[in-house]
């Protein structure tokens, strides 16, 4: 069963110029993206800065209104299109999609104690009794492996890793059916990253959670995700199961991305694929396949024809004209 189906999502930001703030152009931050998330799985949305992955997640959370497309969300046995709902009608569905933030410092209100931070969503959604709330907060703290005694502490007393646990507890409070985790470990120290990743995996196994995991670090992604979706300049280039995509990428960009990740073993000095030039500008992308100016397999057709995302084998979508003929290199 799919918890979420995103169909042809677009988000354009106007570029305003001059004194009258006339619209001079558009940044196509998200330019026709489609994917789905199955119940109980982790879909990782990866790509480099500016590829639109964060914009996609903000649209799903409706922190940004999408320009076009559908966001079909399955809740209480029916399917609603979050993209079309006005803000007020959205309210009852908000509680079902929660978020874990990147910055453990900005995500907790410095003026509230932990019990209030985690209890706030409960209170807003009708758990009036303080006793009941404390009980639930205790339960949630236990789930994220923090002592219940920390309830009366303020966030400033916690380390980055502990704050991230509090953030996860808050996201869990309302039994959401989807959790959007936006770079949840990238601000943490290496030795703490592992604790949080393990916790996310644990919670998923215990509670059957569904994650949309937005990240740029492919090593982290490999540890947590079931499927990986790769974006480049506002478009989806490839979606596949984690093991498949890492072992045998089908899109040249995925291949380059994988080869660029430094491997923590000096004996594996791999031949990296060094991409020429910079990432395309989403305000002025190249015609055809956005990746063609940097692609070493590009042919004439790539410069004019925009490749569609097609299922090249079961559960594998690639948007490349040469997907069937290329044999690309992955990592073991």
């Amino acid at each position: 069963m799919n918890v979420l189906e995103v169909v042809n999502l677009r988000k354009y930001f106007p570029i305003r110029k001059g004194l009258l703030r006339r619209i001079a152009g558009q940044v196509r931050a998200v330019d026709g993206v489609s994917f789905h998330i199955k119940k109980g799985e982790t879909l990782a949305l990866v790509g480099e800065s500016g590829c639109g992955k964060t914009t996609v997640s903000r649209c799903i959370l409706r922190a940004l209104p999408p320009s076009e497309g559908e966001i079909r969300f399955a809740v209480d046995g029916k399917v609603v299109d979050l993209a079309k709902l006005p803000k007020r009608a959205l309210r009852p569905y908000r509680r079902h999609i929660q978020m874990v933030f990147q910055d453990p410092f900005s995500s907790l209100n410095p003026r509230m104690v932990i019990a209030d931070i985690i209890g706030e969503p409960l209170l807003i959604n009708g758990m009036r009794s303080g006793e009941e709330r404390r009980k639930r907060v205790k339960e949630l703290l236990d789930m994220v492996q923090l002592p219940a005694a920390y309830m009366n502490r303020f966030p400033h007393a916690f380390s980055g890793g502990q704050r991230q646990r509090v953030g996860i507890a808050r996201a869990l409070a309302l039994h959401p059916s989807l959790i959007v985790a936006d770079e949840p470990v990238s601000a943490l120290d290496v030795s703490v990253q592992a604790q949080i990743l393990n916790l996310l995996l644990d919670l998923q196994d215990r509670l059957g959670l569904t994650y949309l995991f937005v990240a740029h670090d492919l090593s982290v992604v490999k540890h947590v995700s079931d499927r990986v979706a790769v974006m480049y300049v506002g478009r989806m280039v490839e979606i596949a199961g984690t093991a498949d995509i890492f072992a045998r990428p089908r899109h040249p960009y995925t291949e380059a991305l994988l080869s660029a990740v430094p491997k923590p073993d000096p004996r594996l000095k791999s031949e990296r694929i060094i991409l020429e030039r910079d990432v395309a500008d989403p305000a002025n992308p190249p015609p055809g396949c956005h990746f063609h100016p940097r692609c070493r397999y590009a042919v004439e057709r790539c410069k004019v024809d925009t490749p569609a995302l097609q299922e090249v084998e079961p559960n594998r979508w690639v948007s490349c004209h040469r997907a069937h003929e290329l044999m690309l290199r992955g990592v073991q």
Partner: peptide, 26 residues
């Protein structure tokens, strides 16, 4: 723009609650 305000919004807090409970004390 702070994430904790976004979090309150995601929890379903109304405009007034966000202003008075989450922003004003800061």
């Amino acid at each position: 723009e702070e994430d904790f305000v976004t979090a309150a919004e995601l929890a379903g807090a109304g405009q007034l609650r966000i202003i008075f409970r989450h922003m004003l004390p800061s």
